[in-house]
Design a protein around this nucleic acid. Structure first.
Lengths: 347, 347
DNA sequence: TTGTAAGCGTTATCAT
DNA sequence: ATGATAACGCTTACAA
């Protein structure tokens, strides 16, 4: 009962008093202002230490109209790529002294995307990183108009930054073709997924570039199940090789082929996409295409911070500028990881 | 050029003016206060609509000392369990009108955990949900003392809420034993992971309960690679069955066994843990133990909100109370998913 | 280089 | 049931 004061948290006021300066000077120290005498600075810092001062972000945000928070709309965050991106984004953001507010959504469901965006806007984030694997996500975004710096990821050619999906697909097909395959099938991702379409386009392109016949395209949904189920179609098609749009489907296909008594790679060669941890230790180890999600995240965060920091904020002019160079950055090149699921065709 | 005003965002002030009431009344509507005349309420709501009013959370937080934000320290969020939990937590939080601020960390690295916690505290979150797969995370947490309602997850018996890891392991071993296996090996997760230890304990318990000899325990690191590498040891041990502490290792082991010419399940039966999507479509489809992460997330979010809402905030008294019933909630029962990787031993 | 004064948009307190 | 007024903790002018 020594003190009946309502336990007020220490604020700039207290620090200022202890250091014998004004609140404003404390604020200057807090914000690394150039014009503070070295020893004043030291005194303030010491006072902060002694009092265990912690900034109140709400108060700062109220004054500056910036929250140092980036919102991430992580659609389909359970997929391998998005989950990797998410973790990498957090690391980059934290390093830059930013916080991350996350919202998840099912990108196939427009309402869920809208809800997530609204949620994030309500949080007054300084910028947005949106995973838009699905074209519909982009439509919703355009319709809503976020009004703040926004970076689109996981949307193939329509993304602000991306790993070159088409190039990756061509790499995969090239591997198969180089091994001598001519009847190459494609196990595609969902048609309304931008990255799936880009991979399918790359598949067709590489085939065309080599004068090879267009192979059959089977529709999957990224899941191991769909890969498993596609096995019958693949066998029926007479293809000697398959480019699967992701590793999960490739793994499922592997199981399905095995179950049907078809040996891989002797009878059918397979190339996947993503290089999930399982890929290297499947039987046979899967040849696949790896994407650099860390680099993707780094670029995205840097861009959002730069945009929000330049003061332009949510002005429409800034948005136009953003649009202008949306496609400027070169896509990141994927790399082929060669393992044992590709050999020359047996016939 | 019609208006040179600096584009001030609409606030309660504007809404109040348009509705012909005071700011305080608008605030009451915003907070669902009981004492507002129905038609006043309607008028205010209409005004908000018309002006496109959006609450400023920073301002609200400044007044209330609460941010309606839950911090999530998602250690090892790339693992299957944590990533599932994360998504589920976000859903629960959003439903309750809360935001999520995420920080990721490598739970094995104390410094990274400390940094993440500090980061989150700086954000003034109302509560914390911490994934503490690693004992060290718990130690760091205790040493730091968060000062706010905190819920521990993914820490086996030391968690506030959990899926019963030991029971799950016993389920797995029981399946193997029921099939007639007597030489059962365990492919364990990292020893300093609490959930790995709990699964190993369950393994030993079930064996003991049945009067079966304790089988060999091989150390893995959750990765498919470690499962793959354990194949040789498993073969050398003469075990006819293996309980793998997670599906990724089980899948890697499957590949390793295959590569060594050992057929599964004919020669060696396997049970995994997690029921990852790949498990059902591996060859053979993997029998495994499924955890209900959604339920886990629901409970965690409910608890954090309840604790932070009761007003006790960061008082030590509340912390003591939290400790008191930390182990009160019954663990969630895992369920066995029977597929084709278990048969009777051949010998 | 440092200090003073005036907000930022909301909620809390006390009236009415 | 509603209003007036003072916080909340910080930052941005503007002054000195």
């Amino acid at each position: 009962m020594s003190d009946s004061k309502p336990q007020r948290a220490v604020g700039v006021r207290d620090v200022a008093a202890l250091a014998g300066v004004s609140r404003q000077t404390v604020s200057r120290v807090l914000n690394d202002h150039p014009d503070v005498a070295p020893d004043t600075h030291a005194r303030v810092v010491a006072a902060m230490e002694e009092l265990g001062y912690r900034m109140n972000n709400a108060a700062r945000a109220l004054g500056t109209h910036r929250t140092r928070t980036i919102g991430v709309l992580a659609s389909d965050a359970l997929q391998y790529g998005p989950s990797r991106s998410m973790a990498a984004i957090e690391a980059s953001a934290r390093e830059a002294g930013y916080w991350l507010t996350a919202a998840f959504a099912d990108s196939g469901d427009g309402a869920s995307v809208t809800a997530a965006i609204e949620h994030l806007r309500g949080q007054a984030v300084d910028g947005l990183i949106v995973f838009a694997p699905h074209a519909r996500t982009l439509d919703v975004l355009d319709a809503l108009g976020t009004g703040i710096p926004t970076v689109i990821l996981h949307a193939a050619e329509r993304a602000d930054f991306s790993v070159d999906q088409r190039a990756g697909a061509r790499l995969a097909v090239a591997t198969l073709a180089d091994a001598g395959h001519e009847r190459i099938a494609h196990l595609a991702g969902p048609r309304d997924w931008l990255e799936a379409e880009a991979r399918t386009a790359g598949f067709a392109e590489e085939l065309a570039a080599r004068g090879l016949p267009q192979g059959p395209v089977f529709a999957g949904d990224w899941s191991p199940r769909s890969g498993h189920e596609a096995a019958a179609d693949v066998i029926a098609s007479g293809a000697t090789a398959v480019f699967a749009a992701n590793d999960q489907m490739a793994l499922g296909l592997l199981g399905g082929l095995r179950a049907a008594g078809i040996s891989v790679p002797q009878r059918i060669s397979i190339v996947g996409f993503d290089d999930v941890p399982e890929a290297a230790y499947a039987w046979p180890p899967l040849t696949t295409v790896r994407q650099d999600f860390e680099e993707l995240a780094r670029r995205a965060v840097a861009r959002v911070i730069a945009r929000s920091g330049s003061g332009a904020g949510g002005r429409t002019g800034a948005d136009a500028a953003a649009d202008a160079d949306r496609h400027a950055a070169d896509p990141i090149a994927p790399v082929l990881v060669i393992r044992d699921s590709v050999v020359a065709p047996s016939a």
